[in-house]
C-alpha cells in the first residue's frame, strides 16, 4: 500500500525546543494526484514539506516519499522530487540561466534545456537577467522553473503562485496540470483557496500541527456547509426552520425571504419546507475558503 503512495506519513512529530510544530501528522498522497495542503500561518505546512526532503529531521513518526525514507536516502528522494520553497532566495549575483544551470548540474544534467526555454517563454522570463534585478514575481518564476525543469515524479510546491500576476498564475496552474498529465504527483500548499479549488483532486487541512481533514475537493465542498435562499408566498417564522437539525438562520428580511445555512444532508430541511408555500428555492455551495474558515472556527 505504502508503495502505491507518493507520500506517506504516520504520526510525524517535529519540535523546536519547547514548541511542537508537528503533533502527529498523518498523510497519504496518491500517485498521480494533485494534493492541496491547506492551513494558516504556523500550522506546520512548511515544516511538513521540509521533513519530506530531509532539510529538517522529525522527532518521531514515519515518513516515506516515493517509497523511500528521506532520512536514509535523501539524495535518492531529492533526485525524483522538484521543490519550490515558500521563501525563495537565490545567489543574487548570478544570472537566471547561470543559477538554473547550476541547479541542473546538481541534478547531473537531468534537465532538457529546450524544455527550460519553453517554460521560460511560457512564464515570460528572460534567462539573461541577473537575479538581483528581478522582481519578486520574476524570482518566483525562476523557482517554478527549477522545480519543474527535470520533469520530476513528485512536485512539492510551497505557495507556487505567490507574487505572480493573475495571468501568470493561471499559466503556472496550467503547467502544474500538464505535469500531472505527464504522470507527476503534485503536493502543494497555498493560501489561495480558489486556486486549490481549481486544480486539487484532494485537499488536506492542517491545524496546529495536526491534519484535521483529508477529502476530495469536490466532496468536501458538497458535503459541507451550503447556503440556502428561500422565498415564500406568505410570511413564515424562520425560527421554525432554524429548529431543523443542521440548519442555522442567517437572515430573515420580512418573513417572506430567508437565508439559511445547512450543514450536512438537505433532506430534513426540504421535508420541513414542504409544509410551506415556497415560491423560490436556491442553494449555493460554499467556496473552499468558507469551508476552510469553518474548520478554523471550530
Amino acid at each position: 500500500m505504502e508503495q502505491e503512495l507518493s507520500i506517506f506519513t504516520q504520526g510525524l512529530l517535529k519540535s523546536y525546543g519547547n514548541v511542537r510544530a508537528l503533533k502527529g501528522v498523518d498523510l497519504e498522497v496518491r500517485q498521480g494526484e494533485i494534493f492541496g495542503f491547506l492551513g494558516p500561518n504556523g500550522a506546520g505546512k512548511t515544516t511538513t514539506i521540509r521533513c519530506f526532503l530531509d532539510l529538517i529531521r522529525p522527532n518521531g513518526g514515519k515518513v516515506k516519499v516515493l517509497g523511500l525514507d528521506p532520512q536514509k536516502e535523501p539524495v535518492a528522494v531529492r533526485a525524483r522530487v522538484g521543490y519550490l520553497p515558500g521563501e525563495l532566495h537565490f545567489d543574487q549575483n548570478m544570472k537566471v540561466e547561470g543559477i538554473l544551470r547550476y541547479f541542473n548540474q546538481l541534478r547531473h544534467a537531468q534537465a532538457d534545456w529546450e524544455y527550460v526555454r519553453q517554460l521560460a517563454n511560457r512564464l515570460d522570463l528572460d534567462l539573461k537577467m541577473v537575479i538581483k534585478n528581478l522582481s519578486k514575481g520574476n524570482k518566483q518564476k525562476v523557482g517554478v522553473i527549477q522545480a519543474l525543469m527535470h520533469k520530476p515524479e513528485l512536485l512539492m510546491l510551497d505557495e507556487p503562485t505567490s507574487g505572480l500576476d493573475p495571468l501568470i498564475q493561471q499559466e503556472v496552474l496550467r503547467i502544474i496540470r500538464n505535469a500531472r498529465k505527464d504522470g507527476a504527483t503534485v503536493f502543494f500548499s497555498s493560501h489561495n483557496l480558489s486556486e486549490v479549488q481549481q486544480i486539487a483532486d484532494r485537499v488536506g487541512i492542517i491545524r496546529s500541527g495536526k491534519v484535521v481533514e483529508i477529502a476530495e475537493t469536490a466532496m468536501l465542498i458538497n458535503r459541507s456547509l451550503r447556503r440556502v435562499y428561500v422565498r415564500f408566498k406568505q410570511a413564515v417564522d424562520g425560527e421554525i426552520l432554524a429548529r431543523v437539525p443542521g440548519v442555522k438562520l442567517l437572515s430573515q428580511d420580512d418573513g417572506m425571504s430567508l437565508v439559511l445555512q445547512v450543514e450536512g444532508e438537505m433532506d430534513a430541511l426540504i421535508k420541513t419546507l414542504s409544509n410551506y408555500p415556497v415560491s423560490d428555492f436556491e442553494t449555493e455551495h460554499p467556496s473552499l475558503e468558507e469551508i476552510f474558515l469553518a474548520y478554523y472556527e471550530k
Binding site: 521540509r50 526532503l53 532539510l55 535523501p74 539524495v75 535518492a76 531529492r78 533526485a79 522530487v81 521543490y83 520553497p85 521563501e87 525563495l88 532566495h89 537565490f90 545567489d91 541547479f103 546538481l106 541534478r107 547531473h108 523557482g143 527549477q146
Partner: peptide
C-alpha cells in the same frame, strides 16, 4: 542565513 541553502539542499546532493 541568506536562505539560499534550503533550495540548494533540496537538490540531489548529500550533506
Amino acid at each position: 542565513e541568506k536562505g539560499t541553502l534550503d533550495l540548494i539542499m533540496a537538490h540531489p546532493i548529500s550533506r
